[in-house]
Design a protein around this nucleic acid. Sequence first.
DNA 1: TTCGAATATGCGCTTTGCGACATATTGCTC
DNA 2: GAGCAATATGTCGCAAAGCGCATATTCGAA
Lengths: 126, 126
Amino acid sequence: MANSLDRLLREELERLVAGMCKGLNDAKRLAILYALREGPHNVTELCKVIDAPQSNTSQHLAILRDRGLVEAERQGNNVVYSLRHREVIEAIDILRQVMADEISRQNALHGRRRRHRPSPGVKATA
Amino acid sequence: MANSLDRLLREELERLVAGMCKGLNDAKRLAILYALREGPHNVTELCKVIDAPQSNTSQHLAILRDRGLVEAERQGNNVVYSLRHREVIEAIDILRQVMADEISRQNALHGRRRRHRPSPGVKATA
DNA sequence: TTCGAATATGCGCTTTGCGACATATTGCTC
DNA sequence: GAGCAATATGTCGCAAAGCGCATATTCGAA
């Protein structure tokens, strides 16, 4: 048990990481997605948003594009990018919420003891 | 505009990537989370689930632990891990759905033309 | 068709992340 | 306290990712 079912899940998770998570694993790319949430933008505009040189921005856009997270369309001389799946933003927002909870939890739990995880690792003495 | 507001968002996204996304950016770690969704497990059990040696499993658990994604509790000789935020699974499930949509879309759009993204890059000729 | 603006891509470098091995730590039992 | 089982951690080598730079490609305009 927990082997036959997991087999399929494992493979799907493999693809998920390669296809989605890797694309979301960078602050600049997340910033791009959030910028596109407000509406389409061309590359030059996105350069300013993430404060990165053009080549770097294009590289990040290529990553998002290849994974189907954004859509590209030529308009005259420039290329306009737009968000393909708004649900992705939902997912990220959930993670933002979780992180907020986690931070306040760690701050509140015992304000002192700045070390997280008192349980397992942590050599009790030194 | 799009600079003052983004400033704060950018910093939060930075922390989000470091705190959450990095932790979710590995198939084995996702598999661990899904296994824990069914209930707590100790390390030895999780080794079997992700089919990895003990040291490697512990390393992944440390990563999840440090980011507050799982919780560890000693029970006698072994350490039992459990899921801290079920919402994380929700978020991942959303991404799974998005990926499924994206795959079927690419398959359907034009079955032929196995290349994705016909728009911008792609040297038209060679 | 020549030029220039906008964008994409190849390359080399540096940093980061994963995996395997060995080893340290912790707690239980005798 | 000695020994054992379970888990955690340090180190190393390697593959992957991000970045800057130079360069190629595409399109519009003159």
